[in-house]
Amino acid sequence: MAEKRISITIDESGKITAKTDGIKGEMCLIELEEILGEEISAMSVKKTDEYYQRINPGQKNIQKQGVGK
């Protein structure tokens, strides 16, 4: 049984930080797009080394600036 985990933090200013675990390849970005909506286009995506590692490609860190920031 595999586990998909998305940790999302919304800080007091509305800034969102999201991190996926257990979602492989590009699917992690697609999954985040579906949950965070169109606003993901305003996000700055920081791809970690792991993103490029095919062995464990399912982890990404994504940071989004809140509106007005």
């Binding site: 595999a2 998909k4 985990r5 998305i6 007091e12 949950i35």
Partner: peptide, 20 residues
């Protein structure tokens, strides 16, 4: 997804978990 929510002051932490 199943959702666990935690508040840390004004910060909201959501953990979404799905088993496949």
């Amino acid at each position: 997804y199943k959702i666990k929510e935690k508040r840390n002051g004004n910060e909201i932490q959501l953990v979404l978990v799905k088993h496949t």
